[in-house]
């Protein structure tokens, strides 16, 4: 479904330039759940954000359903409409009600009529037990509720793949569970997922494959059982040993 070939990304800023991604190759098959782990600043977010071109790759190719998307003439809005993304800080639209947060995109993009979109949104809200919040504003919700609604907002577009960038890192500990629960249900439904997270139990339970990124490269990838019990690369061993502390 997604194929990344030789991806490089360099950021240029006032103090010079940093090469953040250094030749990433990766395939994500339909229905696969890939969890991406690695130390802070290793390029996990940048990698994920390159997948829907929130960051423009400096070099390399990204394919979505066989079609190169970082090529001239590609309508990136149409591609993004098929890829959901969930952010660490939720990024709900504070000036819109929960319902409107969920319906704005399908309605503006004329994928559904307003009635259809609202009907669909209410069904999604019901699925996460928040239908009574439909007319609330984001600031009236807890962090866990916000993130679950952010997930549902992406789902309202019927995406083919969902990208998660540390979806539980900004949450109070007692709210992490409810968000992971929604993600697990999504996984069980067969959604293709790429998840950057520090929740190793989630990785163990849900992932088909775990990628370890360090210094802008994938140093190791394996199915979760092997990855956690028998890490090969010294950096992976080091990273995992620090997590246990």
């Amino acid at each position: 479904m997604i194929s990344v070939k030789n991806l490089y990304k360099t950021f240029h800023n006032t103090s010079g330039s940093v090469e953040v991604l250094k030749g990433i190759n990766c395939d994500i098959a339909k229905g696969e759940k890939v969890v991406i782990v690695g130390p802070s600043g290793s390029g996990k977010s940048t990698f994920l954000r390159c997948l829907n071109l929130l960051e423009e790759p400096t070099r390399g190719e990204i394919y979505f359903e066989g079609k190169q998307i970082n090529a001239p003439g590609v309508n990136i809005d149409q591609i993004r409409a098929q890829m959901g993304m969930v952010f660490q800080h939720f990024n709900l639209f504070p000036h819109l009600t929960v319902l409107r947060n969920i319906t704005i995109s399908p309605v503006l993009l004329k994928i559904q009529s307003r009635e259809e979109a609202e009907h669909n949104a209410m069904a999604l809200l019901k699925r996460i037990g928040l239908e009574e919040k439909a007319n609330s504003y984001p600031n009236q919700l807890s962090g866990g509720q916000k993130q679950r609604i952010a997930i549902v907002r992406s789902l309202a577009m019927n995406p083919k793949v969902m990208l998660f960038d540390e979806p539980t890192s900004a949450l109070d500990p007692e709210m992490v569970g409810e968000v992971l629960e929604v993600m697990k249900e999504l996984a069980a439904d067969g959604m293709t997922m790429a998840v950057v997270t520090h929740e190793m139990n989630f990785a163990r339970e849900v992932a088909n494959r775990v990628l370890f990124i360090d210094g802008g490269q994938i140093l190791e990838e394996n199915e979760p059982k092997e990855f956690f019990s028998n890490p090969q690369h010294p950096r992976t061993q080091d990273f995992l040993s620090k997590l246990i502390k």
Binding site: R80, F87, N91, F93, I104, S154
Partner: peptide, 13 residues
């Protein structure tokens, strides 16, 4: 916040 436009764009707007 920049996250607002990123959220909008990631939804296909």
């Amino acid at each position: 916040d920049r996250g607002q436009s990123e959220a909008g764009r990631s939804l296909g707007l």
